[in-house]
Design a binder for these strands. Structure first.
Lengths: 209, 209
DNA sequence: CGCGGAATGTTCATGCGGTCAACATCGGGC
DNA sequence: GCCCGATGTTGACCGCATGAACATTCCGCG
């Protein structure tokens, strides 16, 4: 795993970065709950408390992983959309793009379950204060991509955000049901059926608007 | 909280039950991650290890809470559907029922965030073996309710399960985004918009089938 | 009626994780 | 060349899960 952000160069050289990479690996392997300070430090070969020079604690480490994971998710969606063949009909093209983005979303979730869960699971580990209020989903590119695709699909009834959130709900819920919910361990065939049905619902919802 | 299942009557009298109730309370207050053996035991006034006479460990306690939460969710959905006025047109009635079930679902999630999360969050606490494979979503009444409502709505193209899962994905994803996802802290007005948009998508998906 | 085993709880101990305070070390600027 | 601050380390404390050994209580059987 290459460096993620700029780094220092003192004793270790690049501890913050190294810890983030280790933490991302941990999340990839076992989801956010396995992102554990001591283990990250261990993997980097440093004492547990060293991390406190770079992070406010486990919480901030997790938040950093989350940002990373969200970026990778959006990248995966864009790659999926880029692979999608274009179409002459702009509406058809827009529908295809929407579908491809959704498939990219769910595909990422299925391929990197741990990382995906880390991207959204906002479970504050016991007694953490509620974070400051921010404009809701502004910084989440995955959402923006869906909302844009829906907008391109035509009249979203002035409710661009709501429509985007609906589509997002569908792919997010599907991903979680498949990953850690009751649909995990669904045979591949039926899983594809479910994914197809959900995509159909999303597209139908966009059309019907 | 009244008893949930049959109980013993030895030393404590009804320890298993008392522990389950305490655990459900904990989940209600702070979600599954706050369902912690020691605290449940503390609340019941018993030593931590006493719980091991009744549960295999924290995991089983959580599973019990989960079953309880799922039942309550389905109950809430049925209550919501029962409150919904009927309609002469059977299709309209079916659509109304589907909508009511979905609102009941999301409403339960919003009203009892912790319990709702406990109902589905299947995060095994580090290194638990994968549970035995079972018929996927058989025992989850919430899902069955949605699938039935969709079926009543007409031709589900032989893909009853898939269609149900799609609807389920939508309400589940919506609930989680609202609860612990990036949509939490959305002002009430916009939240209603998002819920409405999602329901519209579900119904449109059912129509378009 | 009373005894003995099983069911139920308790105490003690181990190991892991988060976090803090005090201490050690290194590196670069003066 | 020295000193301060940035970076790490040690040691300690606390909560949690869990297992082993021990204590207590109940209940059925003789």
């Amino acid at each position: 795993m290459a460096g993620i952000s700029g780094g220092k160069n003192y004793h270790h050289g690049d501890l913050r970065n190294a810890l983030v990479c280790a933490a991302v690996d941990l999340a990839t392997e076992g989801g956010p709950e396995r992102v554990v300070l001591r283990e990250a430090a261990r993997r980097v070969g440093v004492s547990p408390t060293a991390a406190y020079r770079h992070f406010d604690g486990r919480g901030e480490l997790l938040r950093t992983v989350r940002a990373h994971a969200r970026t990778r998710l959006a990248d995966a969606m864009e790659r999926a959309a880029a692979r999608e063949p274009g179409a002459d009909d702009p509406v058809l093209a827009a529908e295809r793009r929407l579908g491809a983005l959704c498939r990219g979303y769910v595909g990422f979730a299925v391929e990197h379950p741990g990382l995906y869960r880390a991207a959204f699971q906002t479970v504050r580990p016991t007694g953490t204060p509620v974070p400051a209020a921010r404009p809701p989903e502004a910084e989440i590119r995955a959402f923006a991509l869906l909302a844009e695709a829906l907008e391109a699909l035509g009249r979203t009834g002035g409710r661009r955000c709501a429509a985007g959130a609906a589509a997002w709900s569908a792919v997010h819920g599907l991903s979680l049901l498949l990953l850690e919910g009751p649909l995990r361990r669904l045979p591949a065939q039926r899983r594809d059926d479910v994914v197809a049905a959900t995509l159909a619902m999303v597209v139908a919802g966009a059309r019907a608007r």
